[in-house]
Design a protein around this nucleic acid. Structure first.
Length: 208
DNA sequence: ATCTAGATGACCT
DNA sequence: GGTCATCTAGATG
């Protein structure tokens, strides 16, 4: 958990090679880690969304295989990172076997390592809002297009996810995905979003 | 606390 | 040219 074991419990390819909804649920409580330099920045994942296949009209793969979505068609456990709204990087992990375009978007983490770096990146807002949104967490953790396609199962890539906390079922809420304003039903309202309930004291997730 | 509007650029049609 | 898997500041109750 501390310095000595960083990267040793990285989730393996088998983990991501599962139905996307299972991966999205299982990632709640896991620890997303990056190592841009000497120091590691990490956070416990508390919100995810699933995007599954070409039929899912909320998923980028609805347009088929393009330059942008190619990573989603490849091996599970790779980083699918894209730029949107002219400002924001989004971080996703590819799921399911090669050929099936699907991914899990990480929407919120609670920072538990690298507080100094994150404070530098996000110090202009209160700690509560450091990484409570997909665009915010990439800014906090220094994730951008340069990590697109990175192997999340291999810590030497500089970005990985490791075992974190076990979050019990009663602490996980399932809701429709966010931000799909013009997506037709049933995709707009399908409950493929997982988040830790508000009642859960997020400070319990901190190591400090 | 809740809402609205504008930013800003890659991607797809 | 329209659409975005969003964020922030500023206004309003």
């Amino acid at each position: 958990m501390k310095t000595g074991s960083v990267g040793r419990n990285a989730l393996t390819r088998n983990f991501y090679d599962q139905p996307t909804l299972e991966v999205a649920r299982s990632l709640i409580g896991a620890r997303l880690c990056v190592k841009p330099g000497e120091q590691t920045i990490s956070g416990i994942i508390t919100e995810t969304e699933a995007y599954i296949g070409e039929k899912d009209l909320g998923c980028h793969a609805k347009s088929g295989l393009t330059k942008r979505t190619a990573v989603m068609y490849g091996q599970p456990g790779m980083a699918y990172i894209y730029f949107t709204y002219g400002n924001h990087w989004m971080f996703c992990v590819v799921t399911e076997a090669a050929g099936i375009p699907a991914a899990v978007l990480v929407r919120t983490v609670v920072i538990d390592q690298g507080l100094e770096l994150v404070s530098r990146n996000r110090g202009h807002v209160s700690r509560k809002h450091w990484s409570d949104g997909p665009g915010k967490l990439t800014q906090a953790m220094e994730i951008d297009g340069s990590q697109h396609g990175a192997d999340i199962t291999n810590p030497t890539s500089g970005i990985w996810i490791e075992e974190g906390r076990l979050i019990p079922e009663e602490s996980v809420t399932i809701r429709p995905r966010v931000g799909l304003y013009n997506v037709p039903e049933p995709w707009k309202s399908i409950p493929w979003r997982y988040l830790v309930t508000r009642k859960t004291n997020l400070e319990d997730l901190w190591d400090y």
